[in-house]
Structures are given as structure tokens and as C-alpha cells.
Design a protein around this nucleic acid. Structure first.
Length: 829
RNA sequence: GCGGCUGUGGCGAAAUUUGGUAAACGCGCAUGGUUCAGAUCCAUGUGGGGGCAACCCCUUGGAGGUUCAAGUCCUCUCAGCCGCACCA
């Protein structure tokens, strides 16, 4: 008998799958397309190819592959493609350091990823492989940009934006975390720059509403997106500055507090600020304040606990509800990015306004009665954030503030001084980057025609070669003079190309559509292929993409559907967010030196062990700490299955059709069917892969325990063979090489061509059950009873139990609870 | 501050869906077998306490409650993690 040699087994099957292109599927209309079977699109988030794949990749693709195999064997035509999110900063930063072109480092990483995915035995349709950095791909990224541009969904505008000095580029809001660059951790700066945006805010309402269209997404991911979009209902109310003939709309969720407004505040970035103070005594002080704020980092400014600062403008605006003139301030606690960049301040009913009023000795006027000891900061119980009857509010006095909200808005709307409004926290998606390694934005600036889109037939606008990749506050592309200077596609006059490239999140927002028709040179995709395969039935990836990637992809899908290019509103019907693997309790990183290289473990234990281990560590949606001993345990289990197979094979056990089994042989068959049922249910109930694997372990353990007693008789030997083959079949989604090998040895067939086993209900149902006997809810005995035994019999058996009798002795039974087939509880006094 | 998740042996965890045997499976540990020996492998044991034993008591972060019965349901509370946060 030879030992378990994963290397030999794994390379054998990898070769079969590669040569026979086992996992390739055809599109509608292509030869080999099988329209008789339902489709299933199983997709893991595509990797960013940098260096080598890490264990997070292993886990993601192991989970996805298990699902893909499970679905195939349930009769689905599974499409399971792979590609590379290959544009991005690490390759470019490496180029700045070493001079090696990003394309070369990227291609090298891709080769390494590709090789390892094959070594892991992931069932990928390699005919659909793509890289987002290839002109064949980004040509269509550019096409999508132009589609959005034509519909006004891509636009160029000057706006306050976040600038990362380290990466020397602007960032989207989503890519700024705690005032720092999401990628490199450098504090970002605010700048006012002209940039390209995608109008995602136009889709805010649908991005919220269409959560209803999703089949199954983790609730917390939906919550995170909902928070991010940040919808709030309220009113837009116009405050007028008569002296300058200027209207200042504000957004408020509390129109009921309008009568309590005692001052008015503008954000330091407010565009009308200059006009309000020009030539006034306040001009100097305001300018100094604005400059000071501009130098603050986003982090400093975001600190709530900081004392309130600001400067009075010496101007006033009129409160539309009572005609009062209230003074105007500039203060940094008002943000230009939210609402209109101006607020009415109601210190009596808002903590921040209250703090500002105290700092500047401004009047505080209560307009809602009530006390909230939690927030109250003074003896009057102010500020008060709760509900109550209105006071000092003209004709609304005495009314409940909730009801008054609506009435006040109606009244203002009738007078044309306000209206009901909805406001979102979501900002438009800033997509331009002043960097080299990305898809060039396909527009030309012409002195005569302005911004001119590059015509579709001139795509792709290819990335030119450059000498120096270092950004100098502008895109490195700007140095490629010959490339920049071009003809205006409209008038033929001299034009200059846009030198910014697109955010790489644009690339990864549509790759799952390109997979469906990756070699198409005439269109981004064939409509019939997209209509057939979309949406992605099961998407798998890390929760770190809960907002960024997943929201962008949802937006782009909706926009493309509106443009008539797609038939689906949501790209990912079901989402599985895997948990992060840590090492020694900490996130793995090169600087900590606690990384785990999958290649090392694949080399030592085989891919099957590594894959099965990451699925067995714990519930896959939860994180877990990597354990070398744990890997070994899984390796032991697979080796045990292997030895079992060899033993069964060597003995020729169970090769002849066996007569119906009974006794111990039947019990082993029952265990096998129990495992079939358990693994199937665990897959179906939210991918509880850890317990599915443990069920197969139980089956193997049980087979070991009874095999020697069973080999002697044909039904027993057949049961051992069946149990072993079933274990192989059930472990196949996790350990495909071993599963295929064992099944082939025992059945001479290819396990992936076999339907998923069905549990026999007759074998699932046991003839006897363990009756739990309790006295006063405490376990006192367990009795084996016939499965269908009636209530009276169960009670009688319970009363007969010696131990039960002891506990009943001298007591009166006041109640008898019987759960047939399960339990008897005798309540005594 | 708002929202979400988690808390069970020495460790990863199971049972939380349907209230009904707490700790399946794996790791670790212990004992025995195999071996010249070690590794491997095989078998048995392994929440805590008491008892020669049969058995008994305690135990799911903490405190209450509902119930014949609570890890599971309800209320309060503590701790950790994640997201958002001067959002008007």
C-alpha cells in the first residue's frame, strides 16, 4: 500500500481538466451550448494581481469553487470565469521605484496567479480569462465612459475634492477612510479641482429601493450601503439676504424648529461667501478664517469634540416663517459637501448649534417643550432633541411638533419659500486620477469645440509608453507630448487629449459582463449572452468591498440597463461575504511579517488539504486565525479517506452486487445517507461548509470503526465501499482531486459527471429513537424506543426507568409532558 | 452618538432555523497498541466539582423574566469587533 501522494493525484487531474477543457461552457448560439439546463453564474471577486495570491484568495476561490461544483452536480450549467483587476497603483509605484514598466510586473503577477489557481484545481472556464489592463478590455471601459458621457452621467466639474499627497492623485469619497487615503493611509488634503465625475447620486433612490430585488445579501452589507447613501427626509427652506438680493436655501430634517432659528451659518467653502463680505469690515477676518480652515486636515475638522469656531459676517438673512432677521456666520462645523453648505441654526434643539450659540453668546430660543436629561446641558433642559408641543411658534403653538413638520412645509411651499426635500449623503463618484496605470479617459479638449468625446471607432485610446511614471501633480501621461497633441475628432483642428486615467474601480464595475463575451471585438458584449447569463447568481468576496466595489457595480449596471445595454437592474442576486483570515490574531501584512503563503502549504500538504482547511476553519462568513495544526488535521482526514479507498480497492470489497443490507451494514448505509443529507442541507443553508466537512469526517470515522467487522459478508463489504465512495463524492467540492481519484478507483467514473447523491428517506428514518426522560426538566434517563411508539407507551417506559423512579419517590406527579419521538418530562411536587 | 455583528471547554467551533440529550467535528492533551526507537498510524479517554460505584451537583459574558423545559425567546447590562459620524 502506498501513502497518500497529493502531488501525483493533483497533477493528474489538473492535466485532465486542462486538456479536456472540462469547465468551459458555451454561449447561446455557439456550438456546445446546452439550453436544456438552467444556468448558474458563480463568481468570486476578481483578484488584483500583485506578487502572489494570499490565503484570502485561497479562501474566496475555495468557497466559490465548492459552490460551483455543487451546482454543476445539481444539473446547472455553471459559468465560472476568472480574470485580473490589473490596473492600479502598486504596479505603478513599483515602476517609479525600479523603472520596470507596470505592464511587465503586472503580467508577471498574472502568470503567477494563473499558475497557482490551476494548482489549486479551481474549476475555471479559462477560455473567458481577461485582464482589465489590456487594450481589448479597456477599449470597452472607455466605451462605457462615453456611453455615460453622452447621457450626461459622466461630467466634468470643479469641486472641492480629496487629494492624496502620497499617491499624488484625487480620490473618490469612498476611498477616504477617517480622513486618510484608503490605500496608503496618508492624510488627505482638500483641494478645489476640475475633475470627472459619474452621476451616481442620480441613482441614490434606486440604489436604496432595489435592495428589494436582491435574493440574498448579508444584512450588514445592505446596512452599510444604506448608511453610506444616507437618505434623509426633510425640507428645503429659503432664507433671503435682502441687501444683496441673494437666496440661501438650507436643508433641514426639522422644519418644526424653524421658529427657533436664531442665527445662520455658511460653510467656509460656500461659493457666496466672497460676495457677502467683499468690502465689509468682516472681510479680513473671514478670509483669514477660511484660509485657516483650508489648511486643516479632514481628520482635524471631523473631530466633534473640538470647540466650535467661526466668524460673524456682519450680514443677516430673513427667516421665512416669522420674518426675523438673523445674523450670518461662517463656521467649519458646517460642511459644503452635505446639503446646501448652509444651515439655519436652532440652538435650543441641536447640540452643535447650542455649542456654537454658547461660544458666541447668541440667543437660544426654545420652541418645543420637553426635557431630555440625557442631552440637556443647562438648567432649562436645553438643548432638547425630543418631541413635544410647540411654543413661541406663531400659529403652530400647542401643536405636536411631528404634525407641525408637515404643515409648516406645506405652508412654506404655498408661499414659495420652501418645499419638502430629500437629501443624500452620497456624493457623485469622482473617477479621474492623475496617474499612469489606468484606462485613459477618452476625450479630447478642442479650443473650438470644447470637450469632445473620442468616437467609438477610434477606441481604444491606448496608453502611451512614458519614461517617467512619477506623478507631479498632473498625470504622467501629460509628458507624452506626441500622444497628447491630437486632432479634434469633431472639427479636425488641434486638440489635446485628456491625460487623466480612470479610477480602477471603473474597470472592476463591469468585468462580470465582459466574461460573458470576452473576445468580442465588435461590442462590449453580445446582448444575448448577457441576457442569458446575468445576473450573477452567486457572488463571493471580502466584506471590505461592501461599499466601494459593490455599490459602483450596482450603479453601473443600472446605468447600462437604462442605456438599453442590459436587461437586469441588479448585477449580483446573491452575495456571500467571506470573513478575513488572520494570523496570531492580527491582519496579515508584510510589515508585520505574519503572512501565510498558500503555495507553501499546497507544496507540503497538497491543494486539497489547503482548500478544505480554509473551508473547515469555522463558518466561512466569519474570520478566523490560521493554524498550522488545523491544516495538519485536515490533511490527516484526507489521508484517512485515501487509505480507506486503498483498502477497499485492495480487498475488492463490495464489487459484486450485494443483497439488501441489514444490521450493521444497514447502519453504515444509514450513516452515509445521513452525511449526504447533512452536506446538502449545509450547502443550501447559507454555505455552512465547516459543518458539511465535519459530516464527511464523521462518515469516514464511522466507516473505520465498523469496516473490519463488515468486510466478511457481501452486504457489509458493499456498505463499506458505498460509504467510502460517498465520502469521496461529498468531499469532491472541497477536495476535487482526491474526490475524483477515489471515485474513479471505486467506480471507474468521473465524479463531476455524476449527479449529486440523493439521501434515501428510508435510510434517513431510523427505526428507534433515543427517548429523553426528564423529571422537572432535568435529564434522568435515555431509553431506546421504537420510532413510532405512542404516548402511553413512552410514559409507561419512562415510569419504568429505575433512575426516574428514584426521583419520583415520595412525590406527586402533577404534569406529564410528552413530545412523541423525543422526550418525556414528568413534573413532580 | 447612530446602526450592525459576536460572546459556549485549554483552542477553532457545533447545537441558535423548529425552545426539548450542551460541547458534534477538528486541534491540543493523556493512556495503551504498532515500532529497536522516533515520526506516522490504530484504539480509548478528555467541560468543572463530588463519589469505590450507581449516580449527584454546577456550567453557554452578567442579572432578571417567560416556560413543564432556555445556549436558543423577552427585558436590562457588560465586553469585544465592524460600518457611519459636527450629515443639519
Amino acid at each position: 500500500m502506498s501513502g497518500y501522494d497529493p502531488k501525483a493525484i493533483e497533477s493528474k487531474w489538473q492535466q485532465v481538466w486542462a486538456e479536456e477543457r472540462t469547465w468551459e461552457v458555451a454561449n447561446p448560439g455557439q456550438p456546445g451550448f446546452d439550453g436544456s439546463r438552467p444556468k448558474s453564474y458563480v463568481l468570486e471577486m476578481l483578484p488584483y494581481p500583485s506578487g502572489e495570491p494570499h490565503v484570502g484568495h485561497l479562501k474566496c476561490y475555495a468557497i466559490g469553487d465548492a459552490i460551483a461544483h455543487f451546482r454543476r452536480r445539481h444539473g446547472f450549467e455553471v459559468i465560472h470565469p476568472m480574470g485580473y483587476d490589473a490596473f492600479g497603483l502598486p504596479a505603478e509605484n513599483n515602476a517609479i521605484k525600479t523603472g520596470e514598466p507596470p505592464r511587465e510586473t503586472t503580467e508577471r503577477s498574472i502568470a503567477s496567479f494563473r499558475r497557482q489557481f490551476r494548482e489549486w484545481g479551481i474549476s475555471i472556464d479559462w477560455s473567458r480569462e481577461l485582464g482589465t489592463h489590456t487594450p481589448e478590455y479597456y477599449r470597452w471601459t472607455q466605451w462605457i465612459f462615453l456611453q455615460l458621457f453622452e447621457r450626461g452621467l459622466a461630467y466634468r466639474a470643479e469641486a472641492p475634492v480629496q487629494w492624496c499627497p502620497e499617491d499624488a492623485t484625487v480620490l473618490a469619497n469612498e476611498q477616504v477612510v477617517d480622513g486618510r487615503c484608503e490605500r496608503c493611509g496618508t492624510p488627505v488634503e482638500q483641494r478645489s479641482l476640475e475633475q470627472w465625475f459619474f452621476r451616481i447620486t442620480e441613482y441614490a433612490e434606486r440604489l436604496l429601493a432595489d435592495f428589494d430585488l436582491l435574493e440574498s445579501w448579508p444584512e450588514h452589507v445592505i446596512t452599510m450601503q444604506r448608511n453610506w447613501i444616507g437618505r434623509s427626509e426633510g425640507a428645503e427652506v429659503v432664507f433671503r439676504c435682502g441687501e444683496l438680493d441673494l437666496d440661501f436655501p438650507v436643508f433641514t430634517t426639522r422644519p418644526d424648529t424653524l421658529f427657533g432659528a436664531t442665527f445662520f451659518v455658511l460653510a467656509p467653502e460656500h461659493p457666496e461667501l466672497e460676495r457677502l463680505v467683499a468690502g465689509t469690515p468682516a472681510e479680513q477676518a473671514v478670509r483669514e478664517y477660511v484660509n485657516r480652515v483650508a489648511r486643516e486636515s479632514a481628520e482635524e475638522r471631523g473631530d466633534e469634540d473640538r470647540p466650535k469656531t467661526g466668524v460673524p459676517l456682519g450680514r443677516s438673512v430673513v427667516n421665512p416663517v416669522n420674518g426675523e432677521r438673523i445674523p450670518v456666520f461662517v463656521a467649519d462645523y458646517v460642511l459644503m459637501e452635505y446639503g446646501t453648505g448652509a444651515i439655519m441654526a436652532v440652538p435650543a434643539h441641536d447640540i452643535r448649534d447650542y455649542e456654537f450659540a454658547k461660544a458666541f453668546d447668541l440667543p437660544v430660543r426654545r420652541v418645543i417643550e420637553g426635557v431630555d436629561p440625557e442631552v440637556a446641558r443647562d438648567d432649562d433642559g436645553l438643548p432638547y432633541l425630543g418631541d413635544g408641543p410647540m411654543v413661541d411658534s406663531g400659529r403652530f403653538d400647542g401643536e405636536g411638533n411631528r404634525a407641525a413638520c408637515e404643515e409648516i412645509v406645506e405652508w412654506l411651499a404655498a408661499e414659495n419659500r420652501g418645499r419638502a426635500a430629500v437629501n443624500y449623503r452620497l456624493r457623485d463618484w469622482l473617477v479621474s486620477r492623475q496617474r499612469y496605470w489606468g484606462a485613459p479617459i477618452p476625450v479630447v479638449y478642442c479650443e473650438r469645440c470644447g470637450i469632445v468625446p473620442v468616437p467609438g471607432d477610434q477606441l481604444p485610446v491606448e496608453l502611451p509608453g512614458v519614461e517617467d511614471y512619477a506623478p507631479q501633480g498632473r498625470s504622467p501621461l501629460a509628458a507624452a507630448e506626441e500622444w497628447v497633441a491630437t486632432e479634434c475628432p469633431r472639427c479636425g483642428g488641434p486638440g489635446r487629449r485628456e491625460t487623466d486615467t480612470m479610477d480602477t474601480f471603473v474597470d472592476s464595475s463591469w468585468y462580470f459582463i465582459r466574461y460573458l463575451d470576452p473576445r468580442n471585438t465588435e461590442a462590449a458584449w453580445d446582448r444575448a449572452a448577457a441576457d442569458h447569463w446575468l445576473p450573477v447568481d452567486q457572488y463571493i468576496g471580502g466584506v471590505e468591498h461592501a461599499i466601494l466595489h459593490l455599490m459602483y457595480a450596482r450603479f453601473l449596471t443600472k446605468a447600462l440597463a437604462d442605456l438599453g445595454h442590459l436587461d437586469v437592474q441588479e448585477p449580483f442576486a446573491n452575495l456571500f461575504a467571506q470573513g478575513m483570515i488572520t494570523r496570531d490574531g492580527a491582519k496579515m501584512s508584510k510589515s508585520r511579517g505574519n503572512t501565510v503563503s498558500p503555495a507553501e502549504y499546497v507544496e507540503r500538504y497538497g491543494a486539497d488539504t489547503a482548500r478544505t482547511y480554509v473551508c473547515f476553519m469555522g463558518p466561512p462568513e466569519r474570520g478566523g486565525d490560521w493554524s498550522d495544526e488545523g491544516v495538519e488535521g485536515v490533511g490527516r482526514f484526507l489521508a484517512r479517506l485515501w487509505r480507506l479507498c486503498e483498502e477497499v480497492e485492495a480487498r475488492g470489497a463490495g464489487e459484486v452486487e450485494a443483497p439488501a443490507a441489514d444490521g450493521d451494514a444497514r447502519a453504515l448505509l444509514a450513516k452515509a445517507h445521513w452525511a449526504i443529507d447533512k452536506v446538502s442541507r449545509d450547502f443550501e443553508r447559507g454555505f455552512q461548509l465547516n459543518t458539511a466537512i465535519s459530516a464527511v469526517m464523521e462518515l469516514v470515522n464511522e466507516t473505520y470503526r465498523v469496516k473490519d467487522a463488515l468486510y466478511g459478508e457481501p452486504p457489509g463489504a458493499a456498505a463499506v465501499r458505498f460509504a467510502t465512495a460517498t465520502a469521496a463524492s461529498l468531499i469532491f467540492p472541497f477536495a476535487p482531486h482526491l474526490g475524483a481519484e477515489v471515485w474513479e478507483r471505486l467506480h471507474g467514473e468521473r465524479v463531476w459527471e455524476r449527479p449529486w447523491p440523493q439521501a434515501d428517506p428510508e435510510l434517513l428514518a431510523s427505526d428507534t429513537v433515543t427517548l429523553i426522560v426528564q423529571v422537572n426538566g432535568k435529564l434522568r434517563d435515555r431509553i431506546e424506543v421504537a420510532a413510532g411508539a405512542p404516548r402511553e407507551e413512552l410514559l409507561a417506559l419512562a415510569h419504568e426507568s429505575e433512575n426516574v423512579r428514584r426521583h419520583l419517590d415520595g412525590k406527586e406527579v402533577v404534569k406529564e409532558v410528552v413530545v412523541p419521538g423525543k422526550l418525556v418530562n414528568l413534573v413532580v411536587r
